[in-house]
């Protein structure tokens, strides 16, 4: 270990001329004494050069401090050694403490004010639930391919189906599209909400005029949207107008029953006339 007491080497006062204390000190004896015996300039910076000449509390306190320091001043060699060791120990402790803090406190400490990086990182560590439409392509080409080329390509799969990140990460790759069972996943469109299309497409105040929207009562009598529209492409099959006369004829299904004159096309259900006519408008006169 190097000499622990360099601070106590008798050192000439570096700037006695600039020390204002002797000149203005109201306690000349003490002041003179202090100016001579001051250990190692320890108080060099303490008295401000411009401090008031009148005896003030600061100077009185200063004098008191000097008295204490003088008492501490070792009188024997052994005393000096002991004081030196104690001083060096203190310095070493502070130094080691500083190094310890530097080692123990991460550099990022303080980056978030008083907050450790940890809290922000624990927010960042949550698992996302919504995935990305591109992930769905792998297993659902039957829906993805038409969707990709249709006006609804701007509507992400999960905008309609809800968060499916976990599903996309854990589901088995279906052998065929027929293996995809509607209703298998809780929370997705098992029984599609009747207002799915409506939340985006009903004509309401505030919706930009350029956006395609319909007044429900005027658009095919509010029949289920998916009866005509494919949700993945948004395109609709136009129900043809009825070109034949309807006056004095029996119910539609009489002639359009599965075994009738002209059977219903696939996807149609046998229903009362009013329902048929909510989609099929009569073109002829007299209706």
């Amino acid at each position: 270990m190097p000499d622990p007491a360099p601070a106590h080497d008798p050192m000439p006062d570096p700037a006695p001329a600039h020390d204002p204390v002797p000149a203005h000190d109201p306690l000349p004896a003490l002041a003179a004494d202090a100016s001579l015996d001051r250990p190692a300039g320890a108080l060099d910076s303490a008295p401000a050069p411009h401090s008031a000449p009148a005896p003030d509390s600061a100077q009185v306190r200063l004098a008191g401090a000097r008295r204490v320091l003088r008492r501490l001043r070792p009188t024997t060699r052994r005393g000096a050694l002991r004081l030196g060791i104690a001083g060096a120990g203190l310095v070493a402790l502070l130094g080691v403490g500083a190094v310890g803090i530097a080692i123990a406190v991460p550099w990022a400490y303080g980056e978030y004010g008083f907050h450790p990086e940890r809290n922000a990182q624990s927010w960042a560590a949550l698992t996302p639930r919504y995935a990305d439409s591109t992930l769905c392509q792998r297993c659902h080409t039957a829906e993805f391919s038409p969707w990709q080329a249709a006006p609804h390509a701007v509507v992400t799969c999960e905008s309609c189906h809800g968060p499916l990140g976990e599903h996309a990460a854990t589901a088995p790759v279906p052998a065929t599209d027929a293996n995809v069972v509607v209703g298998a996943l809780p929370g997705t469109i098992a029984e599609p909400r009747p207002d799915l299309c409506v939340v985006c497409h009903e004509r309401i105040a505030g919706r930009p005029a350029a956006f395609p929207q319909v007044t429900l009562t005027e658009h095919y009598g509010g029949a289920t949207c998916r009866a005509c529209h494919d949700p993945h492409t948004a395109t609709a099959a136009t129900p043809p107008d009825i070109s034949h006369p309807l006056a004095k004829l029996p119910a539609c299904v009489v002639c359009h029953a599965p075994a009738g004159l002209k059977p219903l096309p696939a996807g149609h259900v046998e229903s009362p006339d009013a329902v048929c006519r909510s989609c099929h408008r009569a073109a002829g006169p007299g209706d």
Binding site: V96, G100, I103, A104, F114, P116, R118
Partner: peptide, 30 residues
């Protein structure tokens, strides 16, 4: 240094305020 680091570490922990209810309980909180 290691010994001195102990109290410093403790101090930093207290300052950092790893709060009382901090421990997440759901599966989501990694």
């Amino acid at each position: 240094g290691g010994l001195a680091a102990l109290p410093a570490l403790l101090g930093a922990r207290i300052l950092a305020g790893e709060g009382p209810a901090g421990a997440g309980t759901t599966a989501r909180a990694a």
